[in-house]
Every structure is written in C-alpha cells, then in structure tokens.
C-alpha cells in the first residue's frame, strides 16, 4: 500500500488510529454503448483513481453533480460493484477481493441509507418488519417477534414514536420515513454508513431534522459517515472533510471550512457560486454572474489533459497536454489542478 497521506509535517500529530476506510487508486469501468451492432462495448470510466482516507467517527461529504460517480463510489466501497482497479481497506483489512460469506459479514459493518424514502421502503411491510428484516437476513434473530425489543430500541434512537411500530410506510411523512430508513440501516450496528443523498427528497424544514439526527447518532454511536450530496449547501454542517467529484475524478478534498472559504479547484468555485443564496441582495442579473458550466457533463473527453480544461478560464498549454495529479497542497488541501500552488 502506497502511503499518500503523510508527507512529513511536524505540526501534524501522527494519527493514533488507522483510518476506518482507506481507498487507494479505485477505478470502476462500465460497459457503454456498443460500437456498431456487434462491436465491443465502449468502456465508460465511471471512477478513475480515487484515493482517500476516512477516520473513525468522522464524516466525509462527497459532492458531485449527476453523472460524477458519487453514488458509484458509495456502491464500490460497499463492494456492490466490480472494481476494475484499486483497493479498498476497511478497518485496516483489504476488502477488495472478499466474497461470499465474508462479504455478507462485511455488509453488517457497512450500511446504506437511500435517497428516496418514498420508494425505498416496501409499502406492504410494517415498520417492525422493515426494521427487523436486516436482523432476520443476517440470522441475528430467528423470528420477527424476537426482534421486537430491538426494533423498539431503534425507534427510540431515531425519535419515532414506539406506538407506530405496526404501521405501514404510507402513514408516515417523508422525514419520518427517512427515519425508518436510518433505523433499518442502524439495525445491524454498523461502523460505517454510506448515506446516498439522504435528504435530497425532503422538504427544507424537515431536512434539518434528519441531518441533525444523523449528527446525534454519530456522537452517540461513534458512527462514520460517507455523506453523498449533489450540492454544497447541505453538507457543510455535517461533514468534517469534503471531497468534490467531477466526471469520475476527485478534483478537490479538504477540511470543510477550507472548501467553503478557500476553494482551490475552479470546479469547486463553480459549484459554490451555483448554490442560490437566500439573500435578495444576491440578485441574478441574467448571465452576468452565471457560472460557466454548460458543457461539463456532455462534453466528450479526448483522453489527454485535464478533464475540466474546456470549461476552465485558466486552462493553459499544460492543461491540454497532461492531466494534473490529485496532489496534496498546503494545509492538507488536496486538489487536481496545475494552477494550485504545489508545496
């Protein structure tokens, strides 16, 4: 394992505990459309050379637009997808190649919270059945009724009234359903939770409730989160570190305040400027302060150079010739851009 995380820095104490999750050079490719009718499928590089560490009890905010690979990364960490390259370490153990029973046991420790609480819960199952299902599947209880006590405990944990235990999902509001989803993810007492846009489908006033609940649970249970989001507005409060994905590449990663107050990659700046501010003095005057982003997702990539260069104001000759490495800069700030001062 190549150690990319520690250049010598006397100010930074050596971490006492190894990271709970380490990802090294992770790549995922999918088969795209075929060339011609019988030709081989074109490869689509969904994730390219993703590397990061996540410390226990911390939250990594993973931000990217649709098609950036953020959900794919979540699924790759859970080993729900074949990796084409790279390694994933969980609690120091290489889990890149585990399968069968070992993989099943691993999923107890890594659980997922889904985006849409309206479609991710089976409408024909009661709250009890929904939350007890993972326990049953993993053989921790032999019947639903045996799980009742544990389910009651979980409902308390996510602040749902215990008397709702025999109700069906349709009688709950969006925020309450997401709480059921969280309780379901917590049932197996996981260490790491991957939350794939857990609040995107919720109303603003309810969103905060769910995010705050997740923070409380983190404190109480020492959970580690990978929190996936499509914009930068909601992740600031919950994340310790934030990573920005752009077309399968990690373009920037830093502590959260550094991302918001001193963004380095031009794409991060675009994402920040695109978030509408609830402040009438920030008026849109049609195009003047619009972020230059139009072709990011649709632009064909010709294989060399920086992937962001065609939408980038600063792009120069170097950006045409060679892709910038994802490198560590001052203050633990990681970025993939030739224009960020290397130290």
């Amino acid at each position: 394992m190549t150690d990319l995380s520690n250049r010598f820095n006397p100010a930074q104490p050596v971490p006492s505990e190894p990271p709970i999750l380490s990802v090294r050079g992770l790549c995922v490719t999918f088969d795209g459309p075929r060339e011609g009718l019988w030709g081989p499928p074109k490869k689509v590089q969904a994730l390219d050379n993703i590397t990061f560490d996540l410390a226990r009890g911390k939250t990594l905010g993973l931000v990217g637009e649709s098609g950036s690979g953020k959900s794919t990364l979540g699924r790759a960490i859970m080993r729900r997808l074949p990796l084409s390259n790279g390694r994933v370490f969980f609690e120091g153990k290489d889990i890149t190649a585990v399968k069968g029973e070992a993989l099943r046991r691993l999923t107890r420790n890594i659980q997922l919270i889904f985006q849409d609480p309206y479609t991710s819960l089976n409408p024909r199952m009661t709250v009890l059945e929904l939350i007890a299902e993972p326990l049953l599947v993993h053989g921790l209880v032999s019947s639903i009724d045996e799980a009742r006590d544990q389910v009651v405990e979980l409902l308390r944990l996510v602040n749902l009234p215990v008397e709702t235990i025999d109700r069906f999902p349709h009688s709950f509001s969006g925020g309450q359903r997401q709480r059921i989803g969280i309780a379901r993810a917590l049932a197996l007492k996981p260490q790491l939770i991957i939350a794939d846009e857990p609040v995107s489908a919720l109303d603003v006033s309810v969103r905060a409730q769910v995010v705050n609940l997740m923070q409380d649970l983190q404190q109480e249970l020492g959970l580690t989160y990978v929190f996936i989001a499509h914009d930068l507005s909601v992740v600031r409060h919950i994340s310790h570190d934030i990573a920005i994905l752009h077309r399968g590449h990690m373009v920037e990663m830093a502590g959260r305040d550094a991302i918001y107050e001193a963004p380095e990659h031009p794409y991060t700046k675009v994402l920040l400027s695109a978030v509408p501010e609830p402040d009438p003095s920030h008026r849109r005057n049609g195009g003047v302060n619009a972020p230059k982003t139009l072709p990011t997702q649709t632009l064909a990539f010709d294989g060399v150079g920086c992937r962001y260069r065609k939408c980038c104001d600063k792009a120069g000759g170097h950006c045409q010739r060679e892709a910038p490495p994802f490198a560590k800069h001052e203050g633990g700030h990681w970025a993939a851009c030739w224009h960020v001062g290397m130290t």
Binding site: Q176, S205, V206, Q209, L232, V234, H237
Partner: peptide, 20 residues
C-alpha cells in the same frame, strides 16, 4: 429562512422546524 442552509454559515448544526 433559518433552516435554509447557507454557504457562509459556520455553525455545526442546521436549525430545524420540529414536527410536520
């Protein structure tokens, strides 16, 4: 207004309206 996340807000917690 107060539960709408703001980019320039350094607080650790989002503020929420309880209930539904």
């Amino acid at each position: 207004i107060r539960s709408t996340p703001r980019l320039d807000d350094r607080r650790d917690r989002l503020v929420s309206i309880e209930g539904a």
